[in-house]
Amino acid sequence: MWYAFGAYNSPTLYGWTQDPAVAKAALGGLNKDREINVYGMEVISDEEAERLGLPQRSDLWFDDDTRLEDFEDNC
Rank of each mutant, 00 (worst) to 15 (best):
M1S: 04
W2E: 01
W2C: 02
A4L: 02
A4S: 05
A4Q: 03
A7Y: 02
A7M: 00
A7I: 01
Y8F: 14
Y8C: 10
Y8I: 11
N9R: 09
N9P: 05
N9V: 11
S10P: 08
P11H: 09
P11N: 11
P11S: 12
T12M: 02
Y14Q: 01
Y14R: 01
Y14I: 00
W16Y: 14
T17S: 11
Q18E: 14
Q18G: 05
D19H: 08
P20D: 07
A21Q: 07
A21D: 08
V22C: 09
A23L: 06
A26Y: 08
A26F: 05
L27D: 00
L27V: 00
G28M: 07
G29A: 10
G29K: 06
L30K: 06
L30E: 05
L30S: 07
L30P: 06
K32L: 06
D33E: 15
N37M: 05
N37E: 11
G40I: 11
M41F: 08
M41C: 08
M41T: 07
E42F: 11
V43E: 15
V43C: 11
I44K: 13
S45Y: 12
D46T: 13
E47T: 13
E48C: 06
A49H: 11
A49R: 09
E50Q: 07
R51V: 02
R51F: 05
R51N: 04
L52R: 10
G53N: 02
G53I: 00
G53W: 04
G53E: 04
L54Y: 01
L54I: 06
L54V: 09
P55W: 01
P55K: 01
Q56D: 10
Q56T: 03
R57F: 06
S58G: 14
S58E: 06
F62Q: 09
F62L: 06
D63E: 00
D64S: 11
D64K: 07
D64E: 09
D65T: 14
T66Q: 12
T66C: 13
T66M: 05
L68C: 06
D70L: 00
F71C: 07
F71H: 10
D73C: 07
N74E: 15
N74I: 12
